[in-house]
Nucleic acid binder design. Structure first.
Lengths: 356, 356
DNA sequence: GTGAAAGCGCTAACAG
DNA sequence: CTGTTAGCGCTTTCAC
C-alpha cells in the first residue's frame, strides 16, 4: 500500500523501456514473447496495475460507459416492509443497470453508475461525464442546460426522456410506449369490464412519463365517450407508496360518487392505494378496480395482484448501450436517433382479471 | 463533438490562468466571486467538463469505488419465464450493487461495476482496479494471485469470501452467517417439523458459501442425533434452477426411501426442485419439505412459497463501502477487519409453515 | 522489436 | 486572490 508501482518501475526491473511495458498491455503481440514474459513476471511481482487514469488521459478513452439516474429510492417502501423485504420493491433503475451492465460487458465496457444528489459546479453528471466515453441519463435527472453543454463533447442517450424538449433535440433517446400502454389498459377497463367512472392519478407535470400516460388515458376515454378532463384527477409528487395511499383516501373522500376504477401513473402509488383500500374495507376489484404502470416485482406480490403495464426496462438499458457504442464507433455525426420500445399490458386480479 | 475543450480553452476565453479555472472547480471559495462567475460562464458556453482522467492522474484519486462480481446471470431462470419475468429472479449481485451505490453516494463516491468475463493481462480486476480508489470483490470472481498483487496497492474488501485462504489473509472481508443460518433452519426442520430423513444439496467444494452452509446443516444433524455424512448428498455446479431440477430428480430416483426434506444450498436450485416435484406429482410440503438459502424475491412468488434463510445483501454492499471508505481515510495500516452479518430464517409454505 | 520524447488535461506547491 | 511551473503515468509517433 506504500508506493504504487508504475511503468517506470516495471521497465527498470525488467530492463526494458516504458514503451515496451506499455506495449505488453496494449498490444502483446508486438513484443517478443520472451520480453513479454519477463515484463509480466516483474509486473506480477511488483503488483503493478496500469493506471486507468493515465491511460485514459493519454489515449482519450476510458472503456467505461455511464448511467445517471435519479435517487429513486422509495423510503416508504422500505420502512414499511423493513430492510429485509425491500428486494421486492426492486425498481426501475436497477433493471436498467442490469441491462446496461450486461450489454456493456458484451462490448468490453465497464459501467459507472451514480444517482443524482447534489448541485454546484461539481455536479453529478459532470463527474460521470468526465470519466466515461459516453453515458445514459434517466429523464429529469439532470438540468437540461447542463446536459446540453455536455452532450456536445460526448455521446449521451436520454432514457424515457422528452423528445419534446427542443434544447435537447439533438440527443439520441429511447423511451417506452407509455401512451400506447396506458391507452390500451384504459380501453380494457372500459370495454372489457364496462367501467366508466374512472379516476386517473398522475404525477408532477414535469414528468414526461406520467404525462404521456395521462395522454393515453385521455385518448381511450375520449374514444369511448367516457367523461374525462384535460388534467389528471390528482397529481402526486413524489410518486411513492405513501403518497399513493394518501391519493386513494383523497379519491374516496371527495364528494360525489366514488370512482369504479383508479388508474395510477405508476405501480408504487397503486400499491399504496391498495393498502388504503384494504384498510378502509373497500373491496378490490369488486368495488373499485386499481391499476398501476411499470411492472415492478412488488406488483405480483401484493393481494390482489396488480394489473399494470410492463415496461421492458432491461431492454431499455441494453438498447442504451447499443446506441452509445454505435456513436462511439464512428456514427458520431449521424442524425439523432429515437427509439420507442413496446410495452405489455399485464392483466391480474386488481382489475378483475386473473385469480384473486 | 469535435474538439473537447480543456482548462486552457476556458482560461484563455476567461482571461485567467488555468490554475484559476482549476480552483473554480476544486475550491470555489478560493476564487473571487466575480472571477468565478466569469469562468463558469465561459465553461458553460464552451461545454467544458473537467477530465476525470486528468484529475485522477494529478491528484491520485478518482472518487470512484468499484465492484467485481461473477457473471451470475442464470440463463435458465430467464429463458424459462421470458425476458419480461426475470425481474423476479433478481439476484444477489443486484442487491449488493444497490447497497454499495447507496452508501457510496453518501460518501461522495460513484460506483464502477463490472462482471467477470475474461482473462489475459487485461483482466477484469485490473481494469477496475486501475480506475478506482478501492473496490469490493465477490468471492471466487478473481484469481487469488491476481488479487493478492492488487491488494498491495489499494484497499480491497472481499465479500462472502474465504477467511480461510491464507494468501488473502490480509484483506478485509465481510460475510454473512451462512453456517448459523443453515444450522438454525435445519434445526427447525428436525425439531419443529419432526423430520429426520434429510438430504442436503450443496455446491462445488470451492464455494465457501455452500461449504459453510453444509457445515451448519451437519452441525444441526449431529446435535439432534440425525444421521448425516460428512459430504453433501449431492454436489451441484453451477447452482442454477435447471441443475436444481435435475438434483431433485436424482434424489427421487436414487434407491431407498425418498427424503422427507430437501435442503438446497441456494434458492435457485430449490426453485428448480419445486418445479420437478410438481411435475412428478410429489406434494410439497406434505410429502417432502424443501428449503433454499439467500432470500431472493423469486422465493416468495413460487408456490408453495419457499422457506429459506435471508442474507442481508443490501447491508453487505453498504458495509463494503463503509469499510473501503474507512481504509481510504487513514486506517490504511490497521489490521485486517472481518465482519459477519447475521441472517434471518424465513419460514414459508415449502417447509410446512405459513399459508400454502 | 524496441527506445526516445512529446504530450494528454489537470492539480498542487510556491511565488507574488 | 491569482499566476507559474512541475509533474501525475501512460500512449504514441518516429527513429533506430
Amino acid at each position: 500500500m506504500s508506493t504504487v508501482p508504475t511503468v517506470y518501475d516495471v521497465a527498470g526491473q525488467a530492463g526494458v523501456s516504458i514503451a515496451t511495458v506499455s506495449r505488453v498491455y496494449r498490444n502483446p503481440d508486438s513484443v517478443r514473447a520472451e520480453t513479454r514474459e519477463r515484463v509480466l513476471a516483474v509486473a506480477r511481482e511488483l503488483g503493478y496495475v496500469p493506471s486507468g487514469n493515465a491511460r485514459g488521459l493519454a489515449s482519450r478513452s476510458t472503456g467505461v460507459l455511464g448511467l445517471c439516474f435519479p435517487d429513486y429510492s422509495d423510503p416508504d417502501a422500505e420502512s414499511e416492509a423493513g430492510d429485509a423485504e425491500d428486494d421486492a420493491a426492486m425498481l426501475y433503475s436497477d433493471q436498467i443497470i442490469r441491462g446496461m451492465e450486461r450489454a456493456a460487458r458484451r462490448h468490453g465496457y465497464a459501467l459507472l453508475i451514480a444517482a443524482s444528489l447534489q448541485g454546484g459546479p461539481e455536479s453529478l453528471v459532470a463527474k460521470v461525464a468526465g470519466r466515461v466515453d459516453g453515458f445514459a441519463v434517466l429523464a429529469r435527472t439532470v438540468p437540461t442546460e447542463e446536459l446540453e453543454a455536455i452532450s456536445r463533447r460526448q455521446p449521451v442517450v436520454m432514457l424515457a426522456g422528452p423528445r419534446e424538449d427542443e434544447q435537447l433535440d439533438h440527443l439520441d433517446h429511447i423511451e417506452v410506449a407509455n401512451q400506447d400502454g396506458q391507452r390500451e389498459l384504459t380501453r380494457h377497463l372500459i370495454e372489457d369490464h364496462g367501467l366508466r367512472r374512472l379516476a386517473f392519478v398522475g404525477g408532477d407535470r414535469t414528468s414526461p412519463d406520467a404525462e404521456a400516460r395521462f395522454r393515453g388515458y385521455r385518448e381511450a376515454c375520449l374514444a369511448a365517450g367516457v367523461t374525462v378532463g384535460d388534467e389528471p384527477d390528482l397529481r402526486i409528487d413524489p410518486m411513492t407508496q405513501a403518497e399513493g395511499a394518501r391519493a386513494a383516501d383523497a379519491l374516496l373522500d371527495r364528494g360525489g360518487e366514488t370512482p369504479a376504477a383508479m388508474l395510477f401513473a405508476n405501480d408504487q402509488m397503486a400499491v399504496g392505494a391498495l393498502h388504503t383500500l384494504e384498510r378502509r374495507g373497500v373491496r378490490v376489484p369488486e368495488e373499485v378496480a386499481v391499476t398501476g404502470f411499470d411492472g415492478i416485482a412488488l406488483g405480483r406480490l401484493v393481494r390482489p395482484a396488480l394489473t399494470t403495464v410492463r415496461q421492458p426496462m432491461l431492454r431499455l438499458g441494453e438498447e442504451a448501450v447499443e446506441q452509445l457504442v454505435r456513436r462511439l464507433g464512428g456514427g458520431r455525426a449521424d442524425a439523432p436517433r429515437s427509439l420507442v420500445l413496446p410495452v405489455t399490458v399485464v392483466l391480474r386480479a386488481s382489475c378483475g382479471c386473473g385469480r384473486p
